[in-house]
Each structure stands twice: as structure tokens, then as C-alpha cells.
């Protein structure tokens, strides 16, 4: 089981996001403790991916605050006023946060191994030898030890996504974000990716997982959050929420996906 210490690693408070006049997130509050697996579900357009992307500043934050490990994300607070961080400072914050995308986004001109080695060498200044050793370990861990020399185009979707997970882990992040990691996969490939994520959860990694995999939420999640229309509708223990949803919108959504 996951080791949960009651110490918040991620705190999202009053998060709002506008695209022009379109109000996508309308005040999100979410806390994720160290070692916790927080699963976020909801219909498409509910803002769950946008919320996730705000956590590592792939989207700017219109209002509200996000902190990870006690550090305010994207801003410096001076005398009660927020100042934008410089791009270099933002890059430094992102190093602590791994992200896995729906469409994998592996670098197509690099092999699986090179994809994993890229950031440790370029960002952390690791030596090639160290980075290569670690990359092989990670490939073994995601079950792709024999695919090191393959280019992404030569891997199946499930294999690509597992390489993408290994690539994020190579930076030793304290938090992992998963943005619908299995939505672009053929059904028979979903299991392999979920198994890797389960192992990761067992090892104590703090994870926020936006997904449609209700089974994963029930089995691995420590907390389940249901979002709709840019707000958190319901949040709680996954097994309880799934068995006995309180809000009519949650009930309606679950009746359609289960």
C-alpha cells in the first residue's frame, strides 16, 4: 500500500483560468499529500487537464495560488504583491515535477534511451555514463530494457508512453503529473501503462492522475476528485465516491462511464 504522511506536497487554492473571456477554471481547491495518488475524473471540457497543466505552468495562472513542496509556482511574493518568475526560475521549478502527456510527446529524432538521457545530461549536467546507466535501469523498470535503441516511431503507443514515464522519472521528480496517459492507446495496450503507474504508486511517488480509468482510481487512488464545469463537484475516498456518489452530477457521470 502507499505510505501516506499527512504533509501536503501540492496545494492548489482558488485556482481560476481564463482563455480570453472563457472562464475555464472557476476556483479549484485541491491538496495532495506526500506519497498520495490523487485521481481526477470528469467529462471532457471540465477543466481537469487545464488544472494539471497549471501545476507546472504549461498554462499561466489567472487567479489563485499553487504551491509544490512549499514553493509558490510561477511567482515570487514581495510585500504582498506577486511578481512573475523568470523563465530560468520556472524551468528550475519544473525540474521537480514530472509530466506524462496524453500524446506521449517523445522526441522523435532520439532513441528511447536518448529520450531518457536528454534532460539529466542537459539540465542536471549528469555525465553520459551515469545517465546511460540510469536510463537502462528505468527502461528495465518499465519493461522495455530491450528497446533502448528504438526510435519512438518503432514503438507501439503503450511502449512509447512507458518510455515517456521513464523519461519523466529520470529527473527524480518529487511529483508526477499524468494527463490522460492512456486515452490515446489501443485498449489492449492500456494495461501495461497502468501497471507501470501502479508500481510507481507503490514505490511512494506522489501523483496527480487525470484519467478516465475508473478501475485505476478505485484500485490505486488515495483520493478521487470529480470535476465538472471548471469546479470540483465532489472529492473523497475513491471507493466511497464510486460506490456512493453524493452529488447528482457525479451520479450521472459515473452511470455513463461505468
Amino acid at each position: 500500500m502507499t505510505i501516506t504522511t499527512e504533509q501536503p506536497l501540492v496545494k492548489i487554492e482558488g485556482l481560476h483560468k481564463y482563455y480570453g473571456t472563457h472562464h475555464v477554471l472557476r476556483g479549484i481547491d485541491l491538496t495532495v499529500n506526500q506519497g498520495e495518488v490523487s485521481v481526477v475524473i470528469g467529462p471532457s471540457g471540465s477543466g481537469k487537464s487545464t488544472m494539471l497543466r497549471c501545476v507546472n505552468l504549461l498554462e499561466t495562472i489567472s487567479a489563485g495560488r499553487i504551491s509544490v513542496g512549499g514553493d509558490l509556482i510561477g511567482y515570487r511574493e514581495v510585500k504582498g504583491r506577486l511578481h512573475d518568475l523568470k523563465t530560468k526560475e520556472i524551468a528550475a521549478q519544473r525540474r521537480e515535477i514530472g509530466m506524462v502527456f496524453q500524446r506521449f510527446n517523445l522526441f522523435p529524432h532520439k532513441t528511447a534511451m536518448q529520450n531518457i538521457m536528454e534532460a539529466p545530461i542537459q539540465v542536471k549536467g549528469q555525465s553520459k555514463t551515469v545517465a546511460r546507466k540510469r536510463a537502462l535501469e528505468l527502461l528495465d523498470r518499465v519493461g522495455l530494457g530491450d528497446r533502448a535503441g528504438h526510435y519512438p516511431s518503432q514503438l507501439s503507443g503503450g511502449q512509447q508512453q512507458r518510455v515517456a514515464i521513464a523519461r519523466a522519472l529520470a529527473m527524480d521528480p518529487e511529483l508526477m503529473l499524468f494527463d490522460e496517459p492512456t486515452s490515446a492507446l489501443d485498449p489492449e495496450l492500456v494495461g501495461d501503462v497502468l501497471n507501470v503507474m501502479k508500481d510507481l504508486a507503490k514505490s511512494g511517488m506522489t501523483m496527480i492522475v487525470v484519467t478516465h480509468e475508473i478501475g485505476f482510481a478505485r484500485e490505486v487512488g488515495d483520493r478521487l476528485t470529480f470535476m465538472d464545469g471548471g469546479i470540483v463537484v465532489e472529492s473523497g475516498d475513491p471507493r466511497e465516491v464510486l460506490a456512493n456518489p453524493q452529488h447528482p452530477r457525479t451520479k450521472e457521470f459515473l452511470s455513463r462511464v461505468l
Partner: peptide, 24 residues
């Protein structure tokens, strides 16, 4: 998605351009 993936890994703008975007 390529620059987003590189940004998420904490790479700086110059490195993203040189190592990820330009080669492609």
C-alpha cells in the same frame, strides 16, 4: 507538444530550441 515536453523536463528555452525544435 515537443516544446511542452521539453519545458516540463525543466529545459531552458535555448536548449529546447537547439536540441529539440531545430533538429526536427
Amino acid at each position: 507538444g515537443q516544446s511542452e515536453a521539453a519545458e516540463a523536463l525543466g529545459m531552458t528555452k535555448g536548449k529546447i530550441m537547439r536540441r529539440i525544435i531545430l533538429p526536427q
